[in-house]
């Protein structure tokens, strides 16, 4: 039976002496999804990816890729990988690099190589030596290497970090097209605005531990906020909405109401009573970036509380 999951990680742990790069990471990525793996620098994202790809042996834990053990040689024929830090032999041409990887996959024809290079916009630079390519073009070459052989699962670690906006847009289009073909994409990226438009689900890792995993839609709709544009607001009006427990921030006519949508008429009534002109009320969609920052800050506070509690020998506040 074909597994519905492209990636299943169970308790992945990597320790270097007393330091822990990642601990008990459990992940589930459905087939056909674009999955965003988020976390601040040094959180352990790349370590998890490297374990899944066999670059780093785990201290504990195991994983399955496309329904088979992650070390299975056959499964590696169906995987493409663009590392964050990579280099291709500078003395090879663009075509030769992709051709070599195609050969390793058992593909001898020229067609697959040309298709991969066309997909990333390098068809006209096939004969150029790798050493003559800019960083952005080398990243495109890395993408061509990752997609050659039509893999079912792609691991992309910061795939657009060196690209210009046009390059990023093109890669975004490529990934959308890839997903429409039923492929699974595992993305590590710091460019959260890009991930927001691409991902179906995300996971957040911090200090080697997974702190969130779920759908992107859930994250973006979890907090309802509305932008309210008004005329001058008297202090009495502000006191009244505060008294009613309505949470508004901002000022000078530009407010953000964070709360239940059903209480908007109540807010409107208060403003009307004080003859405050209301020009606009618009829902504010939470961005992935704001969620990311808020989540990390929340975690920071939690960790600080734990540390303080540990220090004092009592429970966290």
């Amino acid at each position: 039976m074909v597994s519905l999951n492209a990636v299943e990680a169970l308790g992945l742990t990597k320790c270097y002496g007393r330091a822990t790069a990642c601990q008990d990471v459990n992940l589930l990525v459905r087939r056909g999804q674009i999955f965003g793996f988020l976390g601040p620098n040094g959180a352990g994202k790349s370590t998890v990816v490297k374990i899944l790809l066999g670059l780093v042996p785990p201290t504990r834990g195991t994983a399955r890729l496309l329904g088979r053990p992650y070390k299975d040689r056959e499964v590696h024929r169906r995987i493409g990988y663009l590392p964050e830090l990579f280099r291709y032999p500078p003395w090879l041409s663009v075509h030769e690099v992709v051709k070599w990887h195609a050969r390793v996959l058992g593909i001898s024809g020229r067609q697959a190589v040309v298709e991969a290079l066309e997909a990333v916009g390098l068809a006209d630079r096939q004969q150029a030596r790798v050493k003559t390519l800019s960083k952005g073009l080398q990243q495109r070459l890395g993408l061509a290497v990752a997609i050659v052989g039509d893999p079912d699962l792609l691991f992309l670690d910061e795939p657009t970090s060196a690209m210009d906006p046009v390059g990023r847009h093109e890669v975004g289009e490529l990934l959308h097209a890839w997903r429409h073909r039923g492929k699974t994409i595992f993305l590590n990226s710091h460019l959260l605005s890009e991930l927001e438009g691409l991902c179906d689900s995300v996971a957040l890792i911090r200090q080697g531990r997974l702190v969130y995993t779920g759908s992107l839609q859930t994250i973006l709709s979890a907090r309802s906020e509305f932008g309210v544009t008004t005329g001058p607001v008297p202090t009495a009006c502000q006191r009244e909405w505060e008294g009613e427990g309505l949470e508004l921030s901002g000022g000078d006519g530009d407010w953000v109401y964070a709360g239940d949508r059903d209480r908007l008429p109540e807010l409107h009534a208060i403003l009307a009573r004080h003859r405050v002109a209301v020009y606009e009320v618009v829902p504010v969609r939470q961005s992935l970036e704001s969620w990311f920052i808020r989540s990390l800050q929340g975690e920071e506070t939690k960790y600080a509380a734990h540390r303080a509690a540990d220090h004092m020998g009592g429970p966290p506040a």
Binding site: L53, G54, L55, R73, E74, H76, R77, I79, Y81, L82, P83, L85, F86, Y88, H101, V104, L105, G142, V145, A146, F155
Partner: peptide, 8 residues
């Protein structure tokens, strides 16, 4: 890095 994940 791009070589090790290949089926080798």
């Amino acid at each position: 890095a791009p070589v090790i994940p290949r089926p080798l």
